[in-house]
Amino acid sequence: MANSSDIVLEVDGLSVDIRTAGGTLHAVRDISFSVKRGETLCLVGESGCGKSMTSLAIMDLLPKAATKTARRLAFAGEDLSRAGKGRINALRGNSMSMIFQEPMTALNPAYTIGNQLVEAYCLHKKASEVEARERAVFLLGKVGIANAAERLGQYPHQLSGGLRQRVMIAMALMCGPELLIADEPTTALDVTIQAQILRLLADLQRELGIAMVLITHDLGIVARIADRVAVMYAGQIVEEGPTASLFNAPRHPYTQGLIACIPVPGRTEPGGRLGVIPGVVPSLVGEVRGCSFRDRCTKAQQACLDAPPVRETADGHRWRCILENAA
């Protein structure tokens, strides 16, 4: 077991509700997880399962129509649910950083790369602009951008997608954060650049000892980079565990379905049929009862109409299901 002082992020009972014209949307439903220093946790699941909403709740960047509740939401032992706006602003961008999905919309097109890198460092570290620019040049070089000093004077539209994503990573690292949340950082990039960015993130995370939450729907990425995996479905974490354990022995039917959809080199025949998960994700507007996966599950039973128990193995592999082993 990890010492409690090793835990950088602790989430216990986090829920996010959004007011809509049709009722309350329960976007995130009572999820719990923790991330240790130097560890990478991957939040995985199909679009709309609540991954990004979870990250926005942690960073206190939820839209106005959304409200969050939690039994405990702690960063480095400090309860964020009790912290005021001023304290959250002091932590966000400084000790807690986030890489957003689309760098072209996350970067301000009206300001140079240098202005956007320097601003937060001067604000949080009370540093001079000269110090901040030196830090920016260092980090741009660290993330593999050549002629870093010259790039500071360029605008986002003058950079390729891969370079903009590297700038976003450098920006997130400017203040030396303890926690880094990366929300699908390679979605808009081609496959070659994706691999480079993932290697870069993994190398920086190990070198700097950062706790990282990587949000993705790509299980191939998860297998390469994660220490632990949390699988989300319909706003809940339905399975969580060490990466090897979860991939080698998935316990929840949804996780099994996701893994069955992945082609396996040497085993999946060219042109052969891949696995599919029938049905659609249920609506999360209004009351949600029982197992949310039951209408798509081939192993569903009458008992699935009630909330499923959370089961756990000795290595910390947990899943929500009435079955001890759905295999």
Rank of each mutant, 00 (worst) to 15 (best):
L73W: 02
N108Y: 00
D79Y: 10
I99R: 08
L73C: 01
L152I: 07
L123W: 12
A110M: 15
G141Y: 02
A136Y: 07
A83F: 11
P156L: 04
V143E: 03
A66V: 08
A148N: 11
P103W: 04
E150W: 05
R135S: 11
R87N: 13
A70T: 04
Q116W: 05
L73S: 01
G153T: 08
G144P: 03
R71W: 14
A132K: 02
A106K: 05
A148E: 01
E102Q: 05
K85Y: 07
Q116D: 13
Q116G: 11
H124K: 13
L139A: 08
L123V: 14
Y111F: 15
Q158K: 12
I113C: 05
A149R: 14
N94T: 10
H157W: 13
L140Y: 05
K142C: 14
L123H: 11
A70R: 03
K126E: 14
G93R: 00
E102A: 12
L140R: 00
P103S: 06
L139S: 07
P109Y: 03
S95N: 13
A120T: 13
S128R: 04
T112W: 01
R133Q: 09
E131R: 11
Q101E: 12
I88P: 11
N115F: 14
E150D: 15
C122G: 13
L91M: 10
R133T: 01
R92L: 10
G153N: 10
V130D: 12
G141F: 05
L123F: 13
E131V: 06
L152P: 03
K126W: 11
G161L: 10
H124G: 15
G114R: 05
T105G: 09
A127R: 05
I145Y: 06
L73K: 00
R135K: 11
I145W: 07
I99D: 06
S97V: 08
Q154N: 08
M98H: 09
S97M: 14
K85H: 12
T67Y: 11
M104H: 06
Q158F: 08
F100E: 03
P109T: 06
A83M: 09
L139T: 04
A146V: 02
N94M: 06
P103L: 07
A106V: 01
A83N: 06
G114N: 03
N115L: 10
R71D: 15
R151K: 14
L140K: 01
N108V: 04
I113Y: 02
S95I: 13
L107W: 00
M96G: 10
R82F: 05
K125T: 01
C122Y: 07
I145T: 04
N89A: 15
A148F: 06
G93S: 05
Q101Y: 10
A70C: 10
